[in-house]
C-alpha cells in the first residue's frame, strides 16, 4: 500500500482527517469512499498527483469547512468526476443508480441485505 504517497499527495490539498492514532472516518460510507480511491489507484487508473488535483478542484469549488467535516463529501465528488473523466461512467448513470439503490433500500425489509434487485422500479435491470 502506498499509504505514505497518498498522504503526501493529498496533504498539499487538504490533509486526511486523522488523530494521533491514524485516519478517522466519521461514518462507514467515508471508509468505503476512501477504499475505492485506494483500489482504483492500485489498478493504475490514476496517479496520486492526479488524485490530488481532482480533490483540490472540489475543495476549491466548495471551500473546505474549517473543521473538515465535509472532507469525504468532496472526496466522493472528486472520485465521481474522475471516474466520469476516465470514461468509466456518466453523471446520469451514477444519478440513476443512486436513486435505484435508495429505492432498493426502502423496499428491503430490515435485517435483509440491500440488493439492487430489490428496487421496485428497475428490479436491478439498470445499465452500469
Amino acid at each position: 500500500m502506498s499509504h505514505r504517497d497518498l498522504i503526501d499527495a493529498v496533504s498539499v490539498v487538504a490533509p486526511l482527517p486523522c488523530d494521533a492514532a491514524g485516519l478517522v472516518f466519521a461514518e462507514p460510507w467515508q471508509a468505503q469512499a476512501f477504499a475505492m480511491v485506494i483500489a482504483l489507484h492500485g489498478q493504475g487508473l490514476f496517479t496520486w498527483p492526479e488524485w490530488a488535483d481532482a480533490l483540490s478542484h472540489e475543495v476549491k469549488a466548495h471551500g473546505m469547512a474549517d473543521d473538515g467535516s465535509r472532507y469525504y463529501e468532496f472526496w466522493l465528488e472528486a472520485l465521481e468526476h474522475l471516474a466520469i473523466a476516465k470514461g468509466i461512467s456518466t453523471h446520469q448513470r451514477i444519478d440513476d443508480l443512486a436513486a435505484a439503490w435508495a429505492r432498493a433500500a426502502e423496499a428491503t425489509p430490515h435485517g435483509k441485505p440491500i440488493a439492487l434487485g430489490n428496487d421496485p422500479v428497475t428490479g436491478g435491470a439498470i445499465t452500469l
Binding site: 469512499a33 475505492m36 482504483l40 466522493l76 468509466i88 443512486a98 439503490w101 433500500a105 439492487l116 452500469l128
Partner: peptide, 27 residues
C-alpha cells in the same frame, strides 16, 4: 421502522461501488 434506508450520500457510494465492481475495477 421495518425497512432499510440509505442516505443520499450512502446511495451515491453504493452506486459508484456497483459501477466499479461491474467494470471489474474493484473487488
Amino acid at each position: 421502522d421495518d425497512h432499510s434506508h440509505l442516505t443520499p450520500i450512502e446511495a451515491r457510494v453504493k452506486a459508484l461501488e456497483s459501477i466499479l465492481v461491474a467494470k471489474g475495477l474493484v473487488d
